[in-house]
């Protein structure tokens, strides 16, 4: 067996508010392979965002280990002023700091340091095309709909071609068809490029395109029973009417 791309092992995290300790994550463990599209369901304040931040290596956990591609992300997150791991993409929400910026420039922003402008633009165009948003290259943030903004932010997150893309509630504020569009793009990204995608959603139907589903509540992560033998799940629960 290949080792997983990302693995969280007994990760715990609590926040203190005054004298009150809130346990946000309680010994959470999971693994993610390359090319896997995993979704975590959680209600409001269930700790989804904290889990994603720890998985992205931008926030340290209190105990447990986070390993990404063989690298210890916890100690990385503890380093002061650390920025995002170069092989992890985070889907942001904020628009560009300059309202008049063209989206091609904005998507290319993370690339401008290592690359020449032309090369950065080429990759940005490719990222936009991958999510079917290449027509937005010349548009400006304030002209975009919510769905278009979401696509642009995904494009920016994948422009560096990371091994892992992390998205916190990527379908926020979208209609059903728009949601399905965004979700199918995320699945395509995972399947076509081998990028692992980890997302958190507050709605179970938005998990339908994922390969793996999990749920998080009260610091506990719950995973399905037959993760490795999905094809074997044939016994449909009986007595459905009784469960209502």
């Amino acid at each position: 067996m290949n080792r997983p791309l990302l693995s969280l092992d007994r990760v715990s995290k609590s926040y203190w508010r005054g004298r009150h300790e809130t346990l946000v994550l309680d010994e959470v463990s999971f693994e993610l392979d390359a090319g896997e599209f995993a979704a975590i369901f959680g209600q409001r304040a269930s700790g989804k965002t904290t889990l994603l931040r720890i998985a992205a290596g931008i926030e340290p956990c209190d105990s447990g280990s986070v390993t990404f591609d063989g690298e210890d992300l916890v100690s990385r997150a503890r380093r002061r002023g650390a920025s995002l791991h170069p092989r992890i993409g985070w889907m942001r929400r904020e628009g560009p700091f300059l309202p008049s910026m063209e989206m091609l420039d904005y998507v290319a922003l993370p690339l401008l340091r290592p690359l020449r402008h032309e090369e950065a633009h080429r990759l940005a165009t490719r990222a936009l095309r991958r999510i079917g948003a290449d027509h937005l290259a010349r548009a400006r943030w304030r002209e975009l709909s919510n769905a278009e903004r979401t696509l642009v932010m995904i494009a920016q997150a994948i422009v560096r071609e990371p091994a892992l893309l992390i998205a916190d509630d990527p379908t926020m504020g979208l209609s059903t068809t728009e949601r399905e569009d965004v979700l199918s793009h995320l699945r395509d990204i995972a399947e076509d490029t081998g990028m692992a995608v980890l997302m958190a959603v507050p709605d179970v139907p938005d998990m339908l395109r994922s390969h793996t589903v999990m749920s998080l509540s009260d610091g506990e992560l719950i995973r399905p029973t037959r993760r490795s033998a999905r094809a074997d799940v044939i016994e449909f629960p009986r007595g459905r009417g009784e469960s209502a």
């Binding site: 002023g81 920025s83 170069p86 942001r92 904020e94 700091f97 340091r113």
Partner: peptide, 15 residues
């Protein structure tokens, strides 16, 4: 806060 957000794109402290 905006600087921190820019860091989420992977831009480092030095830049």
């Amino acid at each position: 806060r905006r600087l921190a957000d820019l860091k989420l794109t992977g831009i480092g402290s030095r830049a």
